[in-house]
Each structure stands twice: as structure tokens, then as C-alpha cells.
Design a protein around this nucleic acid. Structure first.
Lengths: 207, 207
DNA sequence: TAGATTGTTAATCGATTAACAATC
DNA sequence: TAGATTGTTAATCGATTAACAATC
């Protein structure tokens, strides 16, 4: 099975499986079945089994899935078995919240360099992360092998920054700016427009 | 056409259409075609036309879509033509960033009440939003007609809070806690687990 | 009218679920 | 063995896209 045959939407579910296996390991549960996973996560048990089957035969018939083993497999599948160095651009409230969000670090996702057009001097260090002026973007990216960038700038600034990131070799962009970004095909963009979340609730409650 | 016949995934695209029409109005563009919309947003033009067609016949053949008119239609469709009162629970970095995010207010999405288990006294007001102790949740929700709640608490606390919100009549929940929430059928949950965004990039760059 | 673009049907594509043999 | 649950095929369901008549 080629990677390209795997439905893209699966990656939305894999982190939830991973989290549930992790939780089960911590609760000293040795095996869980696709039925249990499905009930906990609101997913059909057939879907769970099919999702795993794209990557291998991980279960034991009649028993279920061994939690420690599956957690490890999912870690590898998701690329969480080694650590990522990440840059973030835009040091507003959202940028700060992301830098200090502790859910990333223990997954090996490390926001290392932060850039802003006008970093306040008092904040030139945020926790253990250094904040740089945007002018240094190119030189710092070139010195380090960084593949993932987070855009937490206003919409107007986003495309310019992205163009620079692409030139510097960034291959994955997590975009919080409420605008569509144009990138080469080999650069993966993930849009996380916050307003969409609230708007979707507004839509559903109105209809 | 019944509302239930409209594909759920459309709501992911509608806010982007809305934003593009809004931008076009501000740029004094009178008409845009489905082809232009598609190119700008990376969506097939047929998809654009089909999406609109679920709600009415909004275009002029040979011409395109009138920007002011469409912006207004999308506003109604998305429930943005009147204002929503919203509560947020969990006053960490993320909660603060959401409260001060200025993309919501001009859409009529107003975070009015904020709760925490231990609001620091110095922060009992955040901008023009009052911060309350979680014990007051029930009484304040009962006094006001609030339909949307935002969960920005740790995962462990989320389900308890949600149960309380549901009892108090909340019908839409925007969940930032990395855990699946169990709710009655008529309560709409939108999960916005931040780690998933970065993990999906990690996954795509690893494979 | 000629050119452009919509709205919609039908075809295609892709994801989900039902069913069940394999097997622990 | 009997009971349970996996892995996978086939059927179903739903979303996307191609094609084109309608019409501005």
C-alpha cells in the first residue's frame, strides 16, 4: 500500500487514537478493542480497524490491541518518535499562547525560534524561547534545519512571510492567519482559522 | 431542500467565501465569478456554485456574484446577522488569547463571561470582560440567554464543565481541551484540539 | 447577437459501514 | 472448544467534478 492511497482524513483521527492509547497505558490497561475505542471516541469500530489496517496488522484477534505497542506504532506513524524544531512568526496574544502551550513539548514538537516585526525589548525572551526581529528570519533558518513554521501574524502579513519561509526551505506551515496561502505543491499548509470554529457553531445553532 | 440534506462539510468553506466577499466589497469589486473564487481559495469552481446553490440562486449568469449581496446572504446563512453572547471557561494563556482575539467581535461573536477555578484577583477583569469563579457559572448562565460555550480548561476538567453547561442550556461547545466530550444529541460540539494541527504536519512531513 | 457564467444533472471519486471468514 | 475480535471485501453512502443547457 502506497502512502498516497491512504485517505487524508485519517490523520484527523490518528492523534485521537494515540491519545487514547497513551491514556490507557497510563491507566495500566493492557488491551483495548476497536469497539471500546469507537465508543470512547465516537467513531465506528469498523472505521478504527480499517484506519489501523493501512499501516499494518497491529491487533490480536479475539483480544484487541496491546496499548503500549499501539502507542509506539502510532508514535512512529505520526512522526512523533523524534523531535521537531519549529519557528513561530507573530508575537501577539495567540503567538504567546502557542509558545507556552505545554501540550506540544511532550510530543517532541518544540517551538524554538519566535519572530515579530517589533519584538518588545522586555519580551526578547519568552520562557526559554528567544524572540527575534523578523529581519533575522533568513539567517536563522539557514543556520538550522527547520521544516515547520507557524503563522500567527495578521492576515495582511501572512503571504509575504510564507514566501520567505518557503524560500528558506520550510515544508510545513500551520496557518492561524485568516487568509488562504499560496504555496508550492510540496509545501503542506494546515489552516487553523479560529473564527471558523465559532462561526460553525453560529451556523449550526441558527439552522 | 431540507437543511439536513446540506453536506456538513460546507460550513468549513462558507466562512472563507464570506471573508472573500467581504474583502472584495472593501476593495470596491462589484462582481466576482465562481472561477475567481475558486482560484483564490483553492476550491473547484463547480464546488463553489454547488455550495451556494444549496441556499438559493444568488448569481447572475454571464456576470457572476454581486459582492455586497452575497456577503449579506452568507451573513444570514452563517447566523452572523445578529450577535451571540458567549462564555469561556479556563483562563490560561489560551483562554486569554481567545478573549482578546479581535477577529470575533466584528463578526458579532462576543465572549462576555469568563470563568476559572481560581481567577487571580489582579485579573478579575480582562479588558472589558469580567472573570468569575467557576462556582458562579450556573447562576450567571441562568440569568442570561447563552447558547455557546468555549472550553479552554485542561482535559481532566472538561467533561465536568461540559455537563454543567449542558444542564444550563448551552447548545454549542467549542472545545480546546484534548479530549472527546460526551454530550446529548442536540448539543453541537466542535473540537479544536491544537496539538492535532502540529501533529498532522509532523505526519505529512514524515511520510 | 456573441461571449460569459450560472445552476444543475449525471458521472466519478473517495470514505464509511456491513458482513463475515480468519484466528487468537 | 466456544467466544471474542480482528482484518478485509463488498456494499453503501456522500462529496466532488465534468458536462452542458439556460440565460444574463
Amino acid at each position: 500500500m502506497k502512502v498516497s492511497d491512504i485517505p487524508g482524513i485519517i490523520v484527523e483521527r490518528l492523534p485521537r487514537y494515540y491519545r487514547y492509547f497513551d491514556k490507557s497505558v497510563r491507566n495500566n490497561v493492557d488491551y483495548i478493542s476497536s469497539k471500546e475505542i469507537g465508543e470512547e471516541l465516537g467513531i465506528h469500530s469498523t472505521q478504527v480497524r480499517k484506519d489501523f489496517s493501512y499501516y499494518g496488522e497491529f491487533g490480536k484477534r479475539g483480544v484487541g490491541y496491546e496499548t503500549t505497542f499501539l502507542r509506539g506504532q502510532l508514535e512512529k506513524i505520526l512522526g512523533l518518535n523524534y523531535s521537531w524544531e519549529i519557528v513561530l512568526i507573530g508575537m501577539g496574544n495567540l503567538g504567546e499562547a502557542l509558545v507556552s502551550y505545554d501540550g506540544f513539548k511532550r510530543l517532541g514538537l518544540n517551538i524554538r525560534y519566535v519572530f515579530d516585526v517589533a519584538p518588545k525589548l522586555a519580551e526578547s525572551k519568552l520562557g526559554d524561547v528567544e524572540v527575534y526581529n523578523i529581519d533575522n528570519l533568513d539567517s536563522i533558518l539557514k543556520k538550522n534545519e527547520i521544516k515547520i513554521g507557524i503563522i500567527a501574524t495578521p492576515a495582511e502579513a501572512a503571504q509575504d512571510i510564507v514566501d520567505k519561509l518557503v524560500v528558506a526551505g520550510i515544508k510545513g506551515i500551520w496557518n492561524f492567519a485568516p487568509t488562504y496561502l499560496h504555496t508550492p505543491e510540496d509545501v503542506h499548509v494546515r489552516n487553523e482559522d479560529l473564527a471558523t470554529g465559532l462561526i460553525s457553531l453560529s451556523y449550526h445553532l441558527s439552522n
